[in-house]
C-alpha cells in the first residue's frame, strides 16, 4: 500500500511538538499522560475511547509519536463535526506501521 498519510507534514509537526511537551518516556506516552489531553477536547469518553482504540495500533496501552498523531488527527476531525470511524481507514495508518 503506497498511500500518502492523511496527517499532513505541518500537522505532524504540531502533533509532534504536543507529544514532546507531554514528557514521553522511551518515545512513548502512557494512557495516563494522553488521557487528560484528549479529555480537554470536550469530546465524550465514548468517542475518545474509540479514538484510543484506533490509535493504539499495537494495543500496548501507550502511544508512540505516530500513534499519537493518529489520535490527535481523529480528535481534531471530530471537533470539526466529522464522525470517528469504527475502523482505521488505510490512509490513516502511519506509513511506519503498514
Amino acid at each position: 500500500v503506497d498511500l500518502p498519510w492523511v496527517v499532513k507534514p505541518e500537522e505532524k509537526i504540531k502533533f509532534d511538538s504536543i507529544f514532546d511537551s507531554l514528557g514521553p518516556v522511551g518515545g512513548m506516552l502512557t494512557g495516563d499522560k494522553v488521557k487528560p489531553v484528549l479529555l480537554n477536547s470536550k469530546l465524550t469518553v465514548d468517542i475518545l475511547g474509540r479514538v484510543w482504540e484506533l490509535s493504539d495500533l499495537d494495543r500496548d496501552g501507550m502511544l508512540d509519536k505516530d500513534e499519537f498523531s493518529v489520535a490527535m488527527y481523529l480528535v481534531y476531525r471530530a471537533l470539526e463535526g466529522e464522525p470517528v470511524p469504527m475502523s482505521l481507514p488505510p490512509p490513516l495508518v502511519p506509513p511506519s506501521k503498514r
Binding site: G31, D32, L38, V45, D56, D60
Partner: peptide, 13 residues
C-alpha cells in the same frame, strides 16, 4: 470483551 483475558489497554474504558 478483551481477548487475551488481560485488562483493557484503553484508558477510556
Amino acid at each position: 470483551q478483551y481477548p487475551g483475558g488481560g485488562s483493557s489497554t484503553n484508558p477510556f474504558l
